Amino acid sequence: MLQQVYPSPQHDYVYELNKDFHFAAAHYVPSEEAGKCQRVHGHTYYANVTVAGDELDAAGFLVNFAIIKKLIHERFDHTLLNDDTDSFDEADPNRFPTTEVVARTVCELVQQYLDGTANKPVCVQVFLRETPTSYCVYRPKRKGGKSHE
């Protein structure tokens, strides 16, 4: 695994958990502006998911590390991202499988799971590296339009 120092999201929660993992996937960006990326190509994506909260669950976890990896790895590893029409859409630029949209989607999938837990932690950041020199940081806004600060 790539040893990496990630940007720190600002928040006032007591606990912060970070999970690193990677998955291999292909995609293409259905836009003429994408240049060569219009063609099917693949990446080994490196992800860091940051979850924060104030309460631990019945097992003493904020969230089990393995669950975070499983949610994303089982869904996206060795797939063509464009085929996941629940997550991506070739008609809507806000849902093309770009690095930005994949990072947001990872966050949304993790948060959807977290919303069903008793201790209700929050996914505060997803760092997604697509290539050795290109990555995206996604930080969702809290309800009311404010970031996790």
Rank of each mutant, 00 (worst) to 15 (best):
K19E: 12
Q4P: 00
L17V: 10
G60D: 05
D115S: 12
P7Q: 12
D57A: 05
K141Q: 13
A24S: 14
T98W: 00
T98M: 01
S134L: 10
S147G: 13
D83N: 12
V101R: 12
F127H: 14
Y46Q: 11
Q125C: 09
P121K: 04
P30Y: 04
T79I: 06
P30D: 07
S8A: 13
Y45S: 08
L2E: 14
C123I: 01
A34D: 04
F21Q: 09
L17W: 01
N18F: 11
M1S: 14
D54T: 10
C123W: 00
H11E: 02
N94W: 09
R104T: 09
V126A: 00
H11T: 04
D57Y: 03
Q10C: 11
E90G: 13
P97L: 02
Q4W: 08
C136H: 12
F21P: 08
F76G: 05
D54H: 14
H27V: 07
T117R: 06
H78G: 01
K19C: 08
T117S: 08
A118L: 11
N18V: 15
Y135V: 04
G60W: 02
V122Q: 14
R104A: 15
Q3G: 10
A91Y: 10
K19I: 13
Q125G: 09
E149V: 12
A58S: 13
Y113N: 03
Q111E: 10
V40C: 09
N18K: 15
M1A: 12
D115Q: 11
N48K: 15
A52Q: 07
H41Q: 06
T131R: 03
T117D: 01
L62V: 11
Y113S: 01
Y28A: 13
T105H: 00
Q4D: 08
H148R: 12
G116S: 08
R75S: 09
